[in-house]
Design a protein around this nucleic acid. Structure first.
Lengths: 240, 240
DNA sequence: AGTTATAGTTATGTCGACAAAGATGGTATT
DNA sequence: AATACCATCTTTGTCGACATAACTATAACT
């Protein structure tokens, strides 16, 4: 029995990003739905009709229901008994809570990573930032790509903590919610330059094995991101 | 449309503890399975046979499969495609990671709660500790009850943070894993007395609105709990 | 006209049966 | 006797159909 690649890939994203074809139908539906929700193809608060989605994905309702249950555990959809499932709504309070939790968890990841990451790991992280920089210079407009790159950076640090629970939390669940938030606000985001510079500072702190400083910088970085997002939400609300 | 009680109860535990009868069969199965896993009735690593469990609960395999998917998202079971689900195994590393994350999250909850909880909330918390104390004195042997009480205390503080994501994280997911750990190690635990005194200190810090101190005390409290658990695991391993 | 009751429609919850993949055990061969 | 192969059996994955609860629209009544 070969042919069961379990993604131990050093740089790959957690569970749901890749692997579009492998596994059971329920897993496939989970992936497709997560993708659709995160990219905004399925609007926030939208009702998710089981029969319709099953038809669209070419499968029965059983696997689809299992996928919905999985997504519910991931906080991407919200179910109410006998009334179906709806895409989660990322209101201001929810996002505020998310960023607060993220600040604590990623700060912790950073502090631990400073003592746990190998020199090679840190070097790779620096190389990742170099790639981001060239990418930014090439395509000034396409902010989104950098956003995904930003998440990549954060995930690598979570991995550096060697704490599986932290990786799961930051990787699979919060990660999706963040991506969702990014897709929604990326149009007018211009924070890539300062973000990159902050990333550089963090890597430097990691290279110096200064966990305290690394945590502090990461917390500030996330606070800054939240301020930026928050202002954007204000504009949205004022426009509406 | 009345008759849809949504559990806004001020003191109730999250999702899975109470409500044994209400909701869909899948929800009921989730609850029963979680209970069985947490109490150790289903051993760690044990294979979960769908047909057998469905029979035992008097339902079809559909709802049961949905329950398994839900539990998977909760990290209480681990599924592998085409090979079924097994109860999660809480090894030393997993627990260590859990307590590290918990320290960060509960520390944060404490800091925020110091500014967010009402005076009444804090008074109720103090009253809760009084009840624990009388309970401890009455039944010196039954440590387990205090353990559940301990979790109750921690959950009330999470609620005090007014951060829904934090409450979910600490309440539904980690909470179950912790209970599981408690059931496993509670036989020879005698840490209720110092734990209670630490709880009292935390409440005092909250009453003084000293978030920094409250966080510090909570972190130490959890570190102490981990040391205690860790020693117990050592003994277990040496015995085996 | 507004509100309530009621019938009809739709969508969710559940079950049983079938298909396919995995595990098991026995037999034959070296 | 040990190993490899094959048949069988178990278990998971999937589908279609039925029951029940929620939603909707129409109509009757105040």
């Amino acid at each position: 029995m070969l042919g069961f690649v379990h993604f131990v890939d050093n740089r790959s994203f957690p569970v749901l990003i890749s692997q579009p074809q492998q596994g059971t139908l329920a897993d496939l539906a989970t992936h497709k739905l997560a993708q659709s929700i995160v990219t905004g193809e399925l609007a926030q608060g939208q009702k998710l009709n089981e029969a319709e989605l099953a038809e669209r994905f070419g499968m029965g309702r059983g696997p689809l229901r299992e996928a919905l249950r999985h997504l519910e555990g991931m906080r991407l959809v919200k179910r109410t008994p006998n009334a179906g499932a709806r895409v989660v709504i990322l209101d201001r309070k929810t996002l505020s809570d998310l960023y607060a939790v993220r600040e604590a968890l990623e700060g912790m990841a950073c502090r631990i990573a400073a003592s746990q990451m190998s020199d090679e790991d840190i070097a790779q992280l620096a190389a990742l930032l170099d790639r981001h920089e060239t990418q930014i210079e090439k395509q000034g407009g396409k902010v989104y790509a950098q956003s995904e790159g930003d998440l990549d950076f954060h995930y690598q640090i979570a991995r550096g903590s060697r704490n599986q629970m932290l990786m799961d939390l930051l990787g699979s669940e919060q990660y999706q919610l963040l991506r969702m938030c990014r897709y929604r606000t990326s149009r007018n985001a211009q924070r890539t330059k300062p973000a990159l510079s902050q990333h550089r500072q963090i890597v430097e702190a990691l290279a110096n094995r200064d966990g305290e400083l690394a945590e502090l910088l990461m917390r500030r970085h996330i606070q800054g991101a939240w301020r930026s997002i928050s202002e954007m939400i204000d504009k949205e609300e004022r426009a509406a």
